[in-house]
Simulated scan of single mutants.
Amino acid sequence: MSSTTSAGPVALSARALGPDLARGCMLLFIALANSHYFLTGTTAGAEIRGGFPLDGSGVDRAVTWVIATFVDGRAFPMFGFLFGYGVAHIVRRQSEAGATPREVRHLLWRRAGVLLAVGVVHGLLLFAGDILAMYGVLLIVGAWAVRWSDRWLLVVAGLFLALSALPSADSLSVSTDPPGTVMLPPDLATQLAERPPVLAFIALLGPIGFACPYLLGLWAGRRRVLEQPERYRRLLVTVAAAGITVAVLGAQPVALALAGVIAVPSAGVLDVVGPLHDATGVLGGLGYAALVTLAARRLESVVEGRPGRVIDALAATGQRSMTCYLAQSVVWAVVFTPYLLGLAGTLTVTATALLAITTWAGSVLLAAELGRRGRRGPFEVLVRRATYRT
């Protein structure tokens, strides 16, 4: 029997600003990305493409272009990267505390188990597009990857990125499917009956799309890239500039079509540009993480290590990202579910974007208040206790 004890979670006051600030900011993008997939259009039989009703105004089309260019398929890869980065941080702390590889792996599996459990409940009761269960499955498998060499991490990440860029008709960015009863159930019985297969599908196949940013996060976490921005400044600047530029350019065939600027391409062309939109989004997610890290370092240096109330609030949101993510889903469930407010056929793309921004701002205020009290979010406490048994 091993005599080692695991290192507990890092105190809130000791956490690096960059990763937390990135999570806090990107939760706005998560809200914008998730909410528009509930919309059915304000006119009967409205055409849906990429989760956007095409019967909106000129303002709606402009908002659609912004979201399709900068948000959809860009925020989630960044969270996948930060998830891998956090796993690398856990592994390093446990190893430094004397834990064996087997003990570290079991600790990660406990963390995966609570993510899987919370994700299933979340998906059943609130949001069918849950990703927490997918993160749990990714970590169950990805716990073995923490022992891989740096070269192998990069090679396999590159293979998964190439796989995501292959022509396919399954890209959500060009899908014409309107939200069905899985997303908008007419009653609770239908909801509980129809969601389990979809949740299982996302949880089991979703890790394929997140494997690349997760593995790159492991690689970057080993080097503490986001915690040492001065040391890795050239790398961060390159990734921010190149990643965001490629993501913006790669999004244009889809974004311009969704906004009605160009005609919708043929099915064969969509099978190419859809995966292109998704694959370049992975690079955009990395670019966002690098950009926010550089901005955080700049803010710290300008104000001598005290970023200010707004930055503190955003970082507090990132520290409680799971709680804030779940709080968003409560809003979506209340606003869009047909047997509750049922506004999926009433709200426009613009109104939904404003709702997403307001929801995110509310979560920032909530997280800031918890931060002032020195309290973690309730779901962060749950993950902490399940992972570290404290």
Rank of each mutant, 00 (worst) to 15 (best):
D312W: 08
L286F: 12
C324V: 11
G308R: 09
L291M: 13
R297S: 11
G305L: 04
E300V: 07
R306Q: 15
L291Q: 09
A315C: 07
S301F: 00
M322K: 02
S301Y: 05
E304D: 15
R309M: 02
A296Q: 10
V292K: 01
E304C: 07
R306K: 15
G308E: 07
S321N: 11
L291K: 11
E304F: 08
V292Q: 01
T293E: 05
R298F: 12
R298G: 15
Q319G: 13
A316D: 11
A290F: 03
A296K: 05
Q319C: 05
M322N: 06
R298K: 13
Q319E: 14
A295C: 12
P307T: 09
Y325K: 03
Y288L: 10
V292G: 00
V303H: 15
G287S: 06
G287A: 04
E300K: 11
L314I: 14
R309E: 11
A296L: 08
A290W: 02
S301A: 13
Q319N: 11
A289D: 02
M322H: 09
G287W: 00
V303K: 15
V310F: 09
S321D: 02
D312A: 11
A315E: 03
L291N: 08
R306W: 08
L314P: 02
T317G: 10
D312H: 12
L291G: 02
Q319P: 08
G308C: 04
I311S: 09
A316W: 00
Y288P: 08
L294E: 10
